[in-house]
Write a protein that binds this DNA or RNA. Structure first.
Lengths: 338, 338
DNA sequence: GTGAAAGCGCTAACAT
DNA sequence: ATGTTAGCGCTTTCAC
């Protein structure tokens, strides 16, 4: 007969006829409890279905065995990373908790808040995805994925943003585009800065001048692409191609183009960045720069585990390669508009 | 000057020259603190960057403002649901935590464990994804997505599994297949049972006999499809089409087929279930039955919010529609094998 | 080998 | 308006 509801250690203790201290020792496998008592307590524990409250336990003991992935919200980018971390977690002693910190519209500082609320007590370590502020010295080891601009001693994982962006724009140029716009990403993120840099490098290498009025800024969020896309596309001398700093904005740009009566890729080519699974589902399927998102998650976990093991990191900044994935959202510019 | 590291309420109290009780009142917006004191404490809080520890707070107060999504692991199915929940979360007062409970290989009972560890203290309520056991009466309100077989008073969200499966098999039959195999899902889940039922209904409706040796069982996990797929495909009288109970297994089945030298869909048609984003990325793109995963997540949250608001649920079991998505993994059977 | 007692950081009565 | 006090459920000395 299993009893449900909140079962406390005290309930187990009473039923087993021992003190809570003894139950605690059994639960945590400490020495100094007779085999008989251990067995009896274990029996009561499974009979009552007891599990120690994480909140209470975390308050008292330093180690909780839980690692956190701190994200602003659960969207395609962060969940891909999460899949990577989760998959790599199986080989470890840790468990995984993911926390969405920007649910109330905080666009900045959510990860600091999350880190302070969870770090030190609930979490033994954390992976922070696209942090908004530089946070030197948290209460627990931290690794950042797609970090904030500016130097910091936090170990990071990212991908070759410059090279990736360059390959995207080179692809457009190779198709014959010369009038190319860009929708930039969240200004505080290193990745956004680097993707713009790659864009400029590719243009320069091809001897093309960048029309600064063809650059607009979003925040990586889907809705944030609407205004910039309209800005770029709702004008007579619109570009024949747009490089959006991430897939979510690229997909939204295609939708905006459609509302403007533009066909993609006939009237407008669009390239994204990330290769979230949704990019393949988009209509038309999105040409994009693939980041190895799951591998980035795995990598971040490896770094964190090293940190937790007290090891010196050989490579505190890991950068992974990107790869252009050509799908259906890009093509040669319309002859008349070349 | 911001100080990092673990800042406790006591530190704030000392620096502001008040007691911790007063700080607590300020933090929680309780009445009975003068405007001057409130301002001074608030200043110190932001100066020190104080955030209350979730562990400590949850121990004392009943409400934490945090809802949990409890999953076995973060894979495409659960993360889609997570996206749905996360998106709907913005309109609420709650924050979202996701917890992977089966990281140490527990295939059964992980959600009971998670619920006991987190429920009652850390979480105000929880959404449990594909639970393995029936859990009447947890410490907090609970909603299940894709529930366990067997009646239970836990409110649930699922989709039209029977109808979806039927449409998948009807699609195969419509293409001319008569020898159709199935890889079933996790036996303890209602959805697996219902999908098999849909399979049988469609076969019966078409006057086709089900060859029981063409039914094998997986667990919804990708690897679990390898043995069943080999069982079905590595024989002379193999089926010309296979309906896999979910996309992960369907995609793996295509891979197994390929290792056997079979072309999909020329030699073998494969249909999945779920329409996880990965199904569109598969080679060939997978024909599948779409569940409205994000909407299911939203729905589950709605139910949970009603429960938390103490409302009586008009609809404790929500069932959403499915839809067949025809892609490239299905086609007519090879003429010679009809 | 076992239990009593202190305390983790916080909240909530209850005094003052 | 503020502080004192008593826990929340657990772990951890330290007595016995």
């Amino acid at each position: 007969m299993v009893t449900y509801g909140r079962v406390r250690m005290e309930d187990v203790a009473r039923q087993a006829g021992v003190s809570v201290a003894t139950v605690s020792k059994v639960v945590n496998g400490r020495y100094g409890v007779s085999a008989t008592t251990t067995a009896r307590v274990a029996d009561v524990i499974s009979e009552l279905g007891y599990e120690a409250s994480l909140g209470a336990r975390s308050l008292r003991s330093t180690r909780t065995g839980i690692l956190g992935v701190l994200v602003a919200e659960f969207e395609p980018f962060s969940t891909e990373l999460l899949k990577g971390v989760s998959g790599a977690m199986a080989d470890t002693d840790y468990e995984l908790m993911a926390f969405a910190g920007a649910t109330h519209g905080e666009t900045v500082g959510w990860e600091r808040r999350s880190l302070r609320r969870l770090g030190g007590t609930l979490l033994d370590g954390a992976i922070v995805v696209t942090p908004t502020v530089i946070e030197p010295g948290a209460a627990v080891p931290v690794v950042a994925i797609d970090p904030h601009t500016g130097s910091s001693d936090v170990p990071t994982v990212d991908s070759d943003n410059v090279g990736g962006a360059r390959s995207a724009v080179e692809h457009l140029i190779g198709l014959g585009h010369t009038r190319i716009g860009m929708i930039r990403g969240r200004e505080d993120l290193e990745s956004a800065r680097l993707r713009e840099q790659g864009f400029r490098q590719a243009m320069a290498a091809a001897g093309l001048e960048v029309d600064e009025t063809l650059l607009a800024t979003g925040s990586y969020r889907s809705e944030s692409a609407v205004a910039p896309a309209l800005l770029l596309l709702d004008r007579r001398d619109r570009p024949t191609a747009v490089f959006a700093a991430n897939d979510l904005m690229a997909i939204r740009t295609v939708e905006v183009a459609r509302t403007l009566g533009l066909q993609v890729p006939a009237d407008l080519s669009v390239v994204g960045f990330d290769n979230i699974p949704e990019s393949a589902l988009a209509q038309p399927a999105l040409t994009t720069v693939a980041q190895p998102l799951r591998e980035m998650g795995r990598c971040a976990l490896d770094l964190l585990l090293s940190l937790l093991a007290g090891e010196e990191l050989a490579q505190p900044h890991v950068r992974l390669d990107t790869r252009l994935v050509e799908r259906a959202s890009t093509g040669p510019p319309a002859p008349g508009r070349l």
